[in-house]
Nucleic acid binder design. Structure first.
Lengths: 189, 189
DNA sequence: GGTTGCTATGCAACGAGTTGCATAGCAGGA
DNA sequence: TCCTGCTATGCAACTCGTTGCATAGCAACC
């Protein structure tokens, strides 16, 4: 499982609390990994017990105190070891594809609406990614203040984002294809 | 969860045993859903208890007997109801993307090999999909004997396969991009 | 005769992910 | 004042998926 490693990468890029991590997983990390706050808290606790990360209590004004986590030597070693380990190409699971093949045995009307809804969701995500790319990865943004990541770090974040963009574009094109196919064969039955 | 629904669709397309289902999940259904035989057997048992599917003992020559499952009325109704239910666009989980962003904090040499390995796996899968398309979805193959699926069924299977093809092509292109990025920034550090 | 390999089914244990709920401080608005 | 909403952390129960193992018949090969 890679959730703990995704957390390590995110904490290396910038230390933070469980809550902050959960928000990153809704945003930039969410381009390639999703996790709820319950999962994150549980894994953070385990990682702390294993000595992978250090905690620091941070009092705050106007909001509850937080625990700020940062990567310890053991965590860095664990990440390094995982990075060396080969992984299997992911296994695919597309509920929507199941539905599309299932549409041969049912009225496809509601499926058409569903596919249109998904296409819109992918368009929204694509727009969101493109906005993030324009904001963070244009040449002018490259001189990012003292908190800005290093060149290699930035470039790698960018190429992962480009992967998300390519994925969304591919999905939109395919869903267009699906809708055209449903239009040709749906009403004929 | 959609495993039970994927099984229903597969059994509607053609009745079969748990073992045969497991093999389909390694092949055509595997374009969009993966499952091991243990999962399949467990779910088949539950579906049988719920009256979604019927069983028939089929004695065989030269090999162990099998249980052939087919979809019952209750199962067809359950599938129909699920097809009407909206689903959320899938959440993404790419171990490889975690590794790529993690490469900023480690020696990227082994990652380059890994990415090349994945690119080859996607090329192999693409070739496999294209061979299947040429075999099953060329105009000449459309007059497919008495066992051949109906036109709508075939068209929907084809559009799902095209989705798999588009996905593999997108991945190969992106992994090329990743390798170019790693080549530019990996050695410089 | 023994080994390997394929068909065919299944159990048990574990690990990971989801869902619902609980707590608590503080801010802002009706 | 009460209600809503955001930050911040966490428990408990459940479902789902993975891994390792077991059984059993038969075929093919050395």
């Amino acid at each position: 499982m890679a959730l703990e490693h995704a957390i390590l990468v995110s904490l290396l890029e910038k230390p933070g609390s469980g809550y902050e991590l959960a928000r990153r997983f809704e945003r930039s990390i969410g381009y390639f990994w999703t996790a709820t706050h319950q999962q994150i808290y549980r894994v953070l606790k385990r990682m702390e017990n294993d000595g992978w990360i250090d905690v620091r209590d941070v009092p705050q004004q106007g909001r509850p105190d937080k625990k700020e986590y940062s990567v310890a030597d053991l965590g860095r070693a664990a990440l390094s070891s995982w990075l060396q380990d080969p992984i299997e190409p992911e296994s695919v699971r597309h509920d929507l594809a199941v539905k599309i093949r299932g549409a041969a045995f049912d009225d496809p009307t509601s499926l058409i609406r569903e596919v249109e809804r998904h296409r819109q969701a992918h368009r929204d995500r694509l727009a969101h990614y493109l906005a993030g790319e324009a904001r963070d990865f244009t040449p002018e943004a490259s001189t990012a203040g003292p908190d800005g990541p290093l060149d290699a770090e930035r470039e790698l974040q960018h190429v992962v984002l480009r992967g998300g963009i390519a994925y969304e574009r591919m999905m939109i094109g395919w869903l267009d294809d699906v809708l055209a196919t449903l239009a040709r064969f749906g009403p004929a039955r």
